[in-house]
């Protein structure tokens, strides 16, 4: 079985859930080899099936943007001739992937939501045109390099050998030109991760700037909070929580849109949700075209009542 390189994302050493999803997907193709820049919990990587773990350690990875990591991955691709390279479909993951693909003359697929293997042929699924179509695609040149979105698979444990191999790669001078002069980690909200949550409750311009009703309903349901770009642009909620074309794509079991009209760019980030509910005072709001259940009404009345009712039922 051939190797599959998996670029691992870790926050202060803690391996992210999407990275574990990548290891799970990699096993459909071959033997996963985790690729780690800096620190990551190697035990977890082995528990989720990593046979090998390549670790790179160089100050350049945290001092310069992206390019030094591409130098490392390129070297591994050339040395190991893997069956595929999987990366998280984040801005950084996609940029590493693009550089590696160009240098190794390999095709690149971004934002895959599924990866299947049939007789050695790897086929990806992507959701395009604001989620209105799914597309099946294949890499036809070089090593398939695939950037995979979060939640594309359920992480499955599988004991891998987890053999750690420290590797070093030369960092090219040109890779040391975009200097990171400051790096401030973000605080977490304490709520579930937006892209991983089973339920997302979001608010738009219709909140008038007060997200407390949205947050209260979210907390009653154990949900993550999302926002439309109008709400983010108004400074009502941080950009990290924006759902849509230029924010996050979410596909939860339940999405509740409050005071959101349902513009195509917002739909792009949520219309593959399993169940969709909306509260909007305009009965002609396009969001109602998508819903399984809709309430035409003022969210300032409807949401607190719903939150109360949930608490009552929970006892």
């Amino acid at each position: 079985m051939s190797e599959v390189l998996v670029l691992i994302d870790a926050l202060e050493g803690k391996v992210t859930k999407p990275s574990l999803e990548l290891l799970t997907i990699a096993r459909r193709i071959g033997e996963p080899s985790a690729v780690v820049f800096g620190a990551a919990d190697t035990g977890v990587l082995a528990e989720y099936g990593a046979e090998k773990i390549y670790t790179f350690d160089d100050a350049a990875y945290s001092e310069y943007l992206v390019a030094p990591k591409a130098d490392g991955v390129t070297q591994l691709v050339k040395e190991k001739s893997p069956a595929a390279v999987l990366v998280p479909s984040t801005t950084e993951g996609k940029e590493v992937a693009a550089r590696v693909a160009l240098r190794t003359e390999s095709g690149l697929i971004t934002d895959a939501v599924d990866v299947t293997v049939d007789g050695g042929t790897i086929t990806t699924t992507q959701s395009v045109f604001a989620g209105n179509f799914t597309v099946a695609a294949q890499v036809t040149k070089g090593t398939p390099i695939i950037a995979v979105k979060p939640n594309s698979a359920a992480p499955e444990q599988a004991s891998g050998a987890g053999a750690v191999e420290a590797v070093s790669a030369e960092v090219a001078e040109v890779s040391k030109t975009a200097k990171i002069t400051s790096n401030k980690p973000k605080e977490t909200s304490g709520r579930p991760e937006l892209t991983e949550a089973a339920i997302v409750v979001s608010g738009g311009r219709g909140t008038g700037g007060d997200f407390s009703d949205v947050e209260a309903l979210a907390d009653a349901l154990g949900a993550a909070v999302g926002a439309s770009r109008a709400a983010v642009d108004s400074g009502w909620y941080p950009h990290t929580f924006q759902v849509g074309q230029t924010g996050k794509t979410v596909s939860p079991q339940l999405y509740i849109a409050n005071g959101i009209s349902g513009a195509i760019q917002h739909r792009a980030g949520m219309q593959t949700s399993k169940t969709i509910v909306a509260v909007n005072k305009d009965d002609e709001a396009p969001i109602f075209e998508l819903v399984d259940f809709g309430v035409v009404g003022d969210l300032k009345q409807v949401l607190p009542q719903a939150t109360e009712e949930i608490k009552k039922r929970k006892g």
Partner: peptide, 22 residues
């Protein structure tokens, strides 16, 4: 091109939901 699109499929239309007025 170094990749090829094999096929595309439109998203199945959502079945109309229930809409109530508060």
């Amino acid at each position: 091109a170094w990749t090829k699109v094999e096929s595309y499929t439109p998203r199945p239309p959502r079945t109309a939901g229930e809409i109530i007025t508060d």
